[in-house]
Structures are given as structure tokens and as C-alpha cells.
């Protein structure tokens, strides 16, 4: 479905010192250097899988995504998506993929949403019956009915994003590339988009590669993650395995019937926060069960919850290790 072998994408970048003198000098002589946006990245994604693509700003996520969609020509390495080489931009390939980028407009900006969808229908050559069926489904799932007659440019960010998703899926793509699809959306908007993508994947078996700064997007949709930093792939595997490998601790949140003195927690792990009768302990992963059992026998426990640290912290740990 998606095969990436030793992908590298390098850019020749103009470099100049600050100041007027340097600016004038750059008119006659320019210094360039090679920026290695992506370097020796390899992975495969089978049909129907949802994969989260994580990394800090400038890590190479978008560049990789653009190589996979054929927008960028790889410097070296090979990319195959649905049996095609993306940068050849064959219509048979482009008809089966879609790209959604948060806060960017793919729909024609100056048209009402319904007309913009009609343009997409004509561009992707979708017949009337399947188009109607897809449109009806998307209008219902994304609650688009009130938006169809409005020009895309007058829609709010959340409304536009819902329309963008619909526009990107009207031709029922087999592979969906999502770059920060919930960027700038409020909590409700994020939840709606996540729920919709989960349903779309379940119903149509589409392969989805998703980049997001919101860990909620990734944890809600993807079991497998790719972690990239400074153009190099740092991790490829289950999100759970990532958590286990890079977080030797777990969080035990204890609610007592009445507050206990500080010495009562000795030997039960590190106290992270203490708010009256609610205490959060950081405990070694291997000793979690034993410590939880001791807590129940030695303290007046009302409730106990065991959690992994936030995935953001774990990702930070991955990059720190790197």
C-alpha cells in the first residue's frame, strides 16, 4: 500500500547574515547550504491502517507527506503508494488519494461549498449516483446542510475544515494524508473530526497517515506511530510499545478518605502532587501492582487509578533520548 525505502529529501537553502551589508552582499554573492529535511527514512503501511506521524516542528513530517503525495520529488530513495510512484502524478494515482492540511484551503475559495464540491466531482470524474451517495453521507456525518450555499471564504475555521474534509473524501480515496487536520479547532471541533475519521476508516477501510501536534488526535485514531526528528525516523511501532519503552514510570492517582501525613508515603514511590486527600505518585513501571496493593492495605484508600504519563511527555523523552 505505502512503501518508503531510504527516502531522502534535501533542499538547497540560501543563507545570509543579518544586516544591510550582508543583504547587499547577497545581491552579488549568495551562500547556500543543503538542508536535509528527510534522511534515509523507511517504513511500510499496509492497507486500512491508521498511522500517526509525530515529531516537533521542522522534523520532516510535512516533507515526507509531500513526497508521499507526489508534490515533492525525492532526492534519493523510493516511494510507492498504491503501486504508483507518487511524483509521476499519474491521474490513476491522484484519483485514489487525498490530502487535507489544517488551515489551508483546498476547496475553491470563491465558490459556495456546494459548487466547490461540484468542481471536485468534475475533477475526480465521479459519476452522479456515487457522488450523491457520498455527498449525502458526508453532509449527514459532518452536519454540512446549513453550509452548502455559503461561499467557502465566509465560513468559520471549524465550518471550513468540515467542508475541506468532505471535499477531500467525495471521491472516496483509498489513502488519506492528513497534516494537522484539527489545527486551530476548538475541543468540540477536534472531537467531531476525530470521530468522523474513525468512522470513515472503519466503513471504507481507508489507509490514513496523520500528523498532528494534538496527541489526542493520534491516541484517538492510531495504534501505530512513526516518530521523526531532524529528518530521521526514531521510532516505528505500537503507541503502547512507545509508551513502555520510553516511560519507565507510571502514575498512580490515589484518593484517600482523609488526608495522610507525608511520612505515610515513604517507600511508595515519588510524590508528584499532593492536593489534600488526592495524591499522585510516580512509581517504577515494574512495581506498580505491588505498590497499589500496599496502598490498599496501609492507607484509607477511597479510589485508586493507574495511568501512563501523558504521551506528550513520552514524545519529549523520545526526542531527549535522541
Amino acid at each position: 500500500m505505502i512503501e518508503v525505502r531510504d527516502l531522502a529529501k534535501h533542499f538547497r537553502v540560501h543563507r545570509r547574515e543579518p544586516g544591510l551589508r550582508a543583504a547587499l552582499r547577497s545581491l552579488v554573492r549568495r551562500d547556500h547550504h543543503t538542508a536535509r529535511a528527510v534522511d534515509q527514512v523507511s517504513f511500510t503501511i499496509p492497507e486500512g491502517e491508521v498511522v500517526g506521524f509525530l515529531g516537533p516542528n521542522g522534523a520532516g513530517k510535512t516533507t515526507t507527506l509531500k513526497c508521499l503525495t507526489g508534490l515533492l520529488h525525492p532526492t534519493t530513495g523510493t516511494v510507492r503508494v498504491l503501486g504508483h510512484t507518487p511524483h509521476h502524478r499519474e491521474p490513476a494515482f491522484l484519483r485514489r488519494v487525498s490530502l487535507v492540511m489544517g488551515q489551508r484551503n483546498a476547496l475553491f475559495w470563491d465558490l459556495p461549498a456546494a459548487d466547490a464540491f461540484e468542481v471536485n466531482r468534475a475533477i475526480y470524474g465521479v459519476a452522479e449516483a456515487p457522488y450523491r451517495s457520498a455527498l449525502d453521507e458526508l453532509v449527514a456525518l459532518l452536519d454540512l446542510e446549513p453550509l452548502l450555499g455559503k461561499q467557502v471564504r465566509v465560513l468559520s475555521l471549524g465550518e471550513r475544515m468540515r467542508c475541506e474534509l468532505a471535499g477531500a473524501l467525495l471521491h472516496r480515496p483509498d489513502v488519506l494524508f492528513l497534516d494537522e487536520p484539527t489545527l486551530g479547532l476548538d475541543v468540540n471541533g477536534q472531537a467531531a473530526v476525530r470521530a468522523f475519521l474513525r468512522d470513515y476508516n472503519a466503513q471504507h477501510g481507508a489507509t490514513i497517515l496523520l500528523t498532528s501536534h494534538y496527541m489526542g488526535d493520534v491516541t484517538a485514531l492510531a495504534r501505530r506511530v512513526l516518530v521523526i526528528d531532524r529528518g530521521t525516523l526514531r521510532f516505528d511501532g505500537d503507541l503502547a510499545a512507545l509508551v513502555e519503552a520510553h516511560s519507565p514510570h507510571r502514575l498512580v492517582r490515589v484518593t484517600l478518605r482523609e488526608a495522610a501525613p507525608a511520612h505515610a508515603w515513604a517507600g511508595l514511590g515519588e510524590v508528584s502532587t499532593m492536593d489534600g486527600a488526592v495524591v499522585t505518585l510516580v512509581v517504577p513501571r515494574a512495581e506498580t501492582a505491588a505498590i497499589a496493593a500496599r496502598l490498599l492495605t496501609t492507607l484509607p484508600v477511597e479510589d485508586v487509578a493507574i495511568e501512563d504519563p501523558p504521551v506528550e511527555d513520552i514524545i519529549r523523552a523520545v526526542f531527549a533520548d535522541a
Binding site: T69, G70, R89, P91, R104, I123
Partner: peptide, 15 residues
């Protein structure tokens, strides 16, 4: 500059 060209290039149409 705004990256709109990406969306024109990814469509199965003569860009």
C-alpha cells in the same frame, strides 16, 4: 507562498 499550489497539483487534472 501560501501552499495553495499543493492542492492544485494533487488533483487529477492538468495543473
Amino acid at each position: 507562498r501560501l501552499g495553495t499550489l499543493d492542492f492544485l497539483l494533487i488533483k487529477p487534472f492538468d495543473a
